[in-house]
């Protein structure tokens, strides 16, 4: 067993375990912290694939994201509004069936057509390649994504504006 395989399994167990804890724990704040762990684990997977840029961006963006979710978690828990709100997993059986089916689908399709074990060699600096392709070949989708995010922001402002 090489170090890479060992690291993969450690990360995989960490990721799946923390992701399960996100939905299973009753305490909303703990759920957010488990989510933070899961997102950090994802960054670890990116590192394992030698995509340092993606790993750093994952940490940078989701650290901010987690903070925002934490705020919501605190606002809706008993600490500030005096009302107890614990996370309940309704329809847990249905959810389990759906996720089991999804896992079966993914695993069976991978088994049917196994991925190449050896990775294609990376030519050049990954960060540079990402930067160049985003600004040349994928410029249009990139800009469209920006427009989509702007639309999301504007609709959030629309919903949040005070009634007059």
């Amino acid at each position: 067993m090489t170090g890479e395989v060992l690291a993969f399994w450690v990360l995989a167990i960490l990721l799946v375990g923390s992701a399960l804890m996100v939905v299973l724990t009753k305490n909303l704040f703990h759920a957010v912290l488990w989510l933070a762990l899961a997102l950090t684990g994802t960054a670890g997977v990116f590192l394992l694939l030698e995509a340092e840029f993606l790993a750093a961006v994952q940490l940078l963006l989701y650290a901010g994201g987690i903070v925002t979710i934490v705020v919501f978690a605190i606002v809706v828990t008993e600490k500030l509004v005096g009302e107890r709100l614990s996370q309940v997993s309704r329809r847990i059986t249905g959810g389990a069936v759906v996720s089991a089916a999804l896992v079966w689908l993914i695993v069976s399709s991978i088994m049917e057509r196994p991925l190449a074990i050896t990775r294609a060699p990376m030519s050049g600096d990954l960060t540079q390649i990402i930067g160049e392709t985003v600004l040349t070949r994928f410029a249009l989708p990139f800009e469209l994504l920006a427009v989509l995010m702007l639309a999301g922001l504007m609709s959030a402002i629309y919903f949040a504006r005070p009634e007059d």
Binding site: T40, E52, F53, V57, A63, G64, I66, V67, V70
Partner: peptide, 19 residues
């Protein structure tokens, strides 16, 4: 290769501990 980005990413994780 991504030194600056790593620095910014890691230092922004500090807020989780603060919280």
């Amino acid at each position: 290769n991504i030194g600056v980005l790593f620095f910014l990413a890691v230092s922004s994780m500090e807020i989780v501990g603060l919280f």
